[in-house]
Design a protein around this nucleic acid. Structure first.
Length: 945
RNA sequence: GCCCGGGUGGUGGAAUUGGCAGACACGACGGACUCAAAAUCCGUUGCUUUCGCGAGCGUGCGGGUUCAAGUCCCGCCCCGGGCACCA
């Protein structure tokens, strides 16, 4: 205590050892230094470099608790950011005290666009700024008392880290997906199977007849990471291509809201579609919320149905393949639609309109070719937003008809933009009777509408989507939808006109970016332009220093140009890949920001290992779960915004690593919680411009003004854009970090959004002040705790509190845990007697996960040994949880009329007799006959008259 | 349109299995202490009614099941989030 600042009162009469912000500050900073020096939060590994104390592992169960790591932004934290971090910190501390070996650390997702944009503005290299920001965030987090194992912290931009990101890429590159075994295997296995003839190439080529270059090209086409010349989302303003997931629904970039154009480009892709079923099915194994599972299921978009082939009249060798979920409605198909950009359109459109072609089918053009060209031009001009807002059906006939195999009918073929090239086969059979979109189109173009399912009685809509007996459907008539589907698929298969199949909305993952600040690919190209892996021994492929790194400002029609192409001496490299030293050209794209965040949890486990990604023993210990073989991080907390991107990519990589034997379980994150956001009042002036929320004046009649002018109030996510941020530093100055932690945890359930109210923070400070005052003399700073037995009632309350707080903390219900602690402390406050050690000791242990600094100080004060972060959490004596007597509410006809106190083990008769003896009960019964009486032991009595 | 959440005092929220609705806190009001203020401590605080005891009403709305419903069932309304011409 000697180093405590002397704040003896002069005129003011504030006691010198009152728990206020200044005292909190001195306690907090002192303990933070101490924890750092002592390595208080270090978690031992079972083996390897962090296995300093193997016995600590041997006799304790493990728990791996993780937050979604942040991007090290330059703006610093506001009080909304650490909500999740405090939750995991409290939970980790509680579990550590409950006997677990807890791994909890924090890293930084530091590659990505904002660092480049900052560098573009300042001329400073991204690495300089990134490292400053990381240092600043580390400082802010440690000031909050977040207990991390700092030895395990990583940044995705560390060479020692991205070396392994590149290594994983090579594992994926050197793999293919075996559909029979439903798993990834090494690419050499594929070559061996081709060599032996055990497997035949799916493209119909004969392996033995291929030369070396063709063989290599064939193998490329099987890899899980492959180069594809595919239509991509090109964003000239950002100078890069973007993944589908990074595009908003109105066709703009999620970052910066810039226009995005579709264009074909050679890009790296990841074959995530191969894992669609496993990504879908294994969701059932996870303890995640329903909504996030629903989002992933929807994103994967599995849909069962059939492929059906339609012969094209006049083109013997062509057939149109469609995907449908309703093969049972084939008898009701009255026309077909191809996507406007479907490659078959040019081959099968007619030269001339047939006589009698309705003029509205021709788009007013003299021949099909002109109609198609005009329609395509018009469709290309529509933005995705137009298509969403205006769902009127448009299209043109291409002059050609197709044959419905099942009954030989001839039906016209249209193109229309309501059919999307990117889903199914880009072509549909249109069944207006059972599809609303087809109905609209058929009405628009005067096409036949045939119902093939009998609508239910009273149905007065258009297309009927429900179940019912098939009609107008030949051999299907009378069957329900499910049976009819099955029978039709059997017929299609038997007659060679199609087969049952499954389609997904999930697309392969576009994996390359034209950026500087990202992981370089460990790939070089030979003179044939074929990608070759850089040998493992040459990793990492280090990102070259580059001052002219900024992306060019490009226009819509320009070629994307990767910044790394400007470093000539890096671009060309001499390597020996087994056939002598040769010159190769490096891959110049970099990986997307998702790459580093796909696997960081694994590196936390064994951050210094330079032999392996992670030692298998260490991985099994922290990730393993012998019970179900699923494995994974025990608790992962982060924002809902990563519901499909990060969490789907990460699961995909983990499954590949699992298939290849590098990890022991099938899933990376066993339990996931999405924390809510902190909302705060935001104010807009009459122009709608946000004004600083901390300069608003509130008049007596609840009107808000800014600089004398009226403003309107709303609530939104705290942040810069709404000008409603509150910084943690302000809170430290006024209250201290423990108060801030306590307030954030007491606001409500962890997964719920909550409005910030600075004026309410004082309630949390008062609790800490009362706890302090119940244990410490404010004038002298000495402990007032006495070693005397607690009164029986207090002892029983203590044990009930211990029981409740343990249960709440286990279930991450920190708000109710705090309420229970408050109740116990209120009893101490009311009591004129000094606090017995019997109560003070467990009280300090109980508050320690929530408010570790003041807990350490009080622990020292009451004579506790060591750090309170490492002692046992108190446990309740079961005998003290039951009382001899219990107070029961007495209801008459369901309304409470009195309360009685009876023995806990009183018989029903005794309870009813006691209830009837109550004056107010007797008055309500009023001599009427008791028809029924219900006694719920320990809860209540209900008398029915 | 479809799929997830949610709706409880002036405010944030509590009620783990159908069993005392409103724990705990903020705010407000009253009191003690003080020359005074702050801080602290004590008390009141869902609405209506009553001097009081008490009584009536009350968990978005309308029905239902039950001795008993915030909780279960049916039908709606509103708010938030996600997806959306996905065949």
């Amino acid at each position: 205590m000697s180093e405590m600042p002397n704040r003896e009162s002069d005129e003011s009469e504030i006691p010198s050892h009152r728990y206020d912000a200044a005292l909190a500050d001195s306690i907090e900073t002192r303990w933070q230094s101490r924890w750092l020096a002592d390595g208080t939060y270090q978690a031992p590994n079972p083996s390897g470099s962090l296995s300093d104390d193997p016995m600590n592992v041997a006799d304790r169960p493990k728990l791996f608790v993780m937050d979604m790591f942040p991007y090290p932004s330059g703006a610093g934290l506001h009080v909304g950011h650490p909500l999740g971090y405090i939750s995991t910190d409290v939970y980790s501390r509680f579990k550590r005290m409950a006997g677990y070996n807890v791994l909890h650390t924090m890293g930084f997702d530091a590659f990505g666009l904002p660092a480049e944009e900052h560098a573009r503005q300042t001329g400073e290299h991204p690495r300089v700024n990134t490292e400053q920001n990381i240092a600043n965030m580390r400082r802010q987090m440690s000031r909050l008392g977040l207990g991390y194992d700092e030895r395990r912290s990583i940044s995705t931009t560390d060479e020692d880290y991205y070396r392994w990101t590149q290594w994983i890429f090579l594992q994926i590159f050197d793999s293919w997906f075996d559909p029979e075994q439903n798993r990834a295997r090494h690419i050499d296995d594929l070559v061996a199977e081709f060599d032996s003839g055990e497997r035949l190439p799916t493209d119909g080529t004969v392996w033995a007849d291929l030369d070396e270059t063709s063989r290599r090209a064939l193998v490329q086409s099987y890899r899980l990471a492959y180069v594809d010349d595919a239509p991509v989302n090109w964003c000239p303003a950002l100078g890069t291509v973007l993944a589908n997931e990074e595009i908003t629904t109105d066709g703009r970039s999620e970052r910066g809201n810039h226009p995005v154009y579709r264009r074909p480009l050679k890009q790296w892709m990841m074959r995530i579609t191969a894992y669609a079923d496993r990504l879908l099915d294994d969701l059932d194994l996870l303890d995640w919320t329903g909504s996030i599972k629903a989002m992933q299921r929807h994103w994967i978009g599995r849909s069962e149905g059939a492929h059906v082939d339609f012969a094209v009249v006049g083109f013997e060798e062509e057939s149109i393949r469609v995907f449908t979920t309703r093969p049972d409605t084939l008898f009701g198909a009255t026309y077909m639609v191809l996507a406007p950009e479907h490659p078959m359109v040019d081959r099968i459109m007619a030269a001339e309109w047939l006589d009698g072609t309705p003029v509205e089918w021709t788009g007013g053009e003299p021949n099909p070719a002109d109609a198609v060209a005009a329609y395509r031009a018009k469709a290309a001009q529509k933005t995705d937003l137009d298509r969403q807002e205006n769902k009127d059906k448009t299209g043109v006939y291409i002059g050609t008809d197709a044959l419905v195999a099942v009954d030989g009918r001839k039906i016209p073929v249209f193109i229309s933009d309501y059919v999307l090239m990117g889903y199914g086969t880009g072509a549909i059979m249109a069944v207006p009777g059972q599809d609303e979109r087809d109905w609209d189109f058929a009405e628009q173009f005067g096409l036949d509408i045939v119902r093939t399912v009998q609508p239910s009685d009273g149905f007065d809509g258009k297309a009927f989507l429900g179940d019912g007996p098939a009609i107008n459907s030949g051999f299907l008539d009378g069957f329900g939808v499910d049976d009819a589907k099955r029978i039709m698929i059997e017929w299609l298969t038997a007659n060679g006109h199609g087969e049952g199949t499954v389609t997904y909305k999930l697309r392969d993952w576009l994996f390359s970016r034209q950026r500087y600040w990202g992981e370089p690919f460990p790939i070089v190209y030979d003179e044939d332009g074929m990608p070759r892996a850089v040998p493992e021994s040459k990793l990492p492929v280090v990102l070259p220093e580059l001052m002219d790194w900024a992306p060019r400002q490009l226009d819509k029609d320009s070629e994307p140009e990767p910044p790394l192409g400007r470093v000539d001496e890096w671009r060309d490299v001499e390597l020996d890949l087994g056939d002598g030293p040769r010159t190769y050209r490096r891959e110049l794209n970099t990986m997307p920001q998702w790459a580093g965040s796909c696997w960081y949890y694994l590196r936390y486990l064994d951050p210094a290992n330079d032999e392996k990604l992670v030692d298998p023993d260490v991985e099994r210990y922290w990730m393993g779960d012998p019970a179900d073989g699923v494995g994974g991080v025990d608790l992962y907390v982060g924002g809902i915004e990563h519901a499909v991107l990060h969490l789907l990519y990460s699961r995909f990589w983990h499954k590949v690593l699992f298939d290849l034997g590098h990890v022991s379980g099938r899933e990376p994150f066993k339990r996931l919680i999405n924390q809510g956001y902190i909302l705060a009042a935001a104010f807009q002036d009459e122009r709608g411009v946000y004004v600083p929320a901390d300069e608003i004046e509130t008049s007596d009649d609840k009107k808000f003004t800014y600089e004398g002018r009226p403003v309107s109030r709303s609530f939104g996510k705290m942040g810069k854009s709404l000008k409603n941020s509150v910084t943690p530093d302000d809170m430290y100055v006024t209250y201290g970090a423990d108060t801030l932690r306590l307030y954030e945890m007491s606001m409500g359930p962890i997964d719920q959004d909550r409005p910030w109210e600075t004026r309410s923070v004082v309630g949390s400070q008062r609790l800490l002040q009362r706890v302090w005052r119940n244990l410490v003399d404010e004038a002298t700073g000495d402990s007032t705790v006495v070693d005397a037995p607690a009164p029986d009632a207090l002892r029983r309350l203590l044990h009930r509190t211990i029981e409740g707080v343990s249960a709440d903390m286990n279930a991450l219900r920190f708000n109710t845990a705090i309420a229970k602690i408050t109740e116990l402390n209120n009893e101490l406050t009311k009591s004129p007697d000094p606090t017995p050690l019997e109560v003070a000791d467990p009280l300090v242990r109980m508050i320690s996960p929530l408010v570790p600094h003041i807990a350490e100080e009080l622990w020292l004060s009451i004579g506790g040994a060591g750090s309170v972060t490492q002692v046992d959490f108190p446990s309740a004596d079961p005998e003290l949880l039951v009382d001899d007597t219990v107070e029961l509410p007495v209801q008459v006809n369901g309304k409470v009329r009195a309360r009685i106190v009876v023995a806990t083990d009183a018989s029903d008769d005794v309870v009813i007799t006691a209830a009837l003896a109550e004056e107010n009960v007797a008055a309500h019964v009023a001599g009427r006959e008791l028809r029924k009486s219900i006694v719920v032991p320990g809860r209540m009595v209900n008398l029915v008259i």
